[in-house]
């Protein structure tokens, strides 16, 4: 026989009480078990963020300083040479991190604010409003987004703000769909009904009852969406309608120095120059995806070790 009490007591009932741990302890436990790919992703993202934040201190020259010889080869003064109007490539790579990541982050956040709130409202409402928003989103999604973005940018002009708003609106359609899809499963729960019976307003139900319960897929989507926005901005810049000179960004750097590839037969290192910003884009995208994969595996409850 066990030493448990023979008679019934409500507070002694067996409940799975977890050991209380502080946030840092929990974070460390999770991190320690993270796979190598997740560690790699975290390191890369941290490195990029440091570079972006401390760009003015790290960069050897000014962002738009064009006082050097054009197309200089790799040397001790210019590690990766200079571009077509004599700007230091390394400096522009460093500043490019700041601009490209900053704009992508702002765009993704805006897309989530728009798509997320509309998605929640549609999921709670489930009436003509849901129909209206959903069909409008369907229409927007039916148009190829890159071409649509090109068209809008040429109408509104390629300022940083119109770039952010246009891409955010186009990407919010996908955020809307995901939010609505996961939120409808939560909306039918009894605790949401209980909140409505209590007389809670829409804002409370959205923010306190539903949002915390759909956070894991939303965070994962944030990572993925960030990668896509980042690639879209790079692609638009490559096409010349994205971030405008003299602001440094990786997409336009690829375009501006693309012709250097032809010099591979004379100077192999020079040919690598346009590939550097492309590699920076690829590395960040891969790193973010590694983190998202790991996060999804953590929160979906799918485990390999059992």
């Amino acid at each position: 026989m066990s030493d448990a009490p023979e008679t019934y007591s409500a507070s002694a009932e067996v409940g799975a009480v977890r050991v209380r741990r502080t946030r840092t302890q929990r974070a460390w436990i999770v991190l320690r078990k993270a796979p190598i790919s997740a560690w790699f992703g975290l390191l890369v993202v941290t490195f990029y963020l440091c570079v972006a934040i401390f760009a003015p201190f790290i960069a050897p020259y000014g962002e738009a300083d064009s006082s050097f010889a054009a197309y200089a080869p790799w040397s001790d003064e210019h590690w990766f040479g200079t571009d077509q109007i004599g700007r230091d490539i390394l400096t522009r790579l460093i500043y490019g991190a700041r601009n490209t990541i900053g704009i992508a982050l702002a765009t993704t956040l805006l897309a989530f604010v728009i798509g997320g709130s509309l998605g929640l409202i549609a999921a709670i409402n489930r009436s003509w409003l849901d129909q209206l928003i959903s069909r409008a989103v369907d229409v927007l999604m039916a148009i190829p987004s890159l071409i649509f973005a090109l068209m809008l940018l040429s109408i509104f002009g390629s300022t940083v703000w119109s770039l952010i708003v246009i891409i955010a609106v186009l990407d919010s359609t996908r955020v809307f769909r995901l939010t609505r899809a996961v939120a409808v499963n939560v909306v039918v729960m009894d605790y949401v009904e209980a909140a409505r019976l209590r007389g809670e307003g829409l804002a409370w139900v959205m923010r306190r009852e539903i949002l915390p319960n759909i956070l894991p897929p939303m965070v994962a989507e944030f990572g993925l969406r960030f990668s896509f926005v980042f690639l879209t901005i790079a692609a638009l810049s490559f096409l010349g309608v994205g971030i405008q000179p003299p602001t440094a960004d990786w997409g336009s750097m690829v375009r501006e120095n693309a012709s250097l590839i032809q010099f591979a037969q004379f100077d192999l290192r020079a040919a690598f120059t346009p590939l550097l910003p492309a590699a920076a884009i690829a590395l960040l995208t891969v790193a973010v995806n590694f983190i998202v994969d790991w996060f999804l595996q953590q929160t979906s409850g799918l485990r390999d070790d059992l």
């Binding site: 009894d190 605790y191 019976l197 007389g199």
Partner: peptide
């Protein structure tokens, strides 16, 4: 609000009647 307050409900499945994040 007063009418809502006077009638309260307790559900069959306590699991789904409480927000798991609160």
């Amino acid at each position: 609000r007063a009418q809502l307050q006077k009638i309260q409900m307790i559900y069959q499945m306590a699991d789904t009647a409480m927000n798991p994040k609160q």
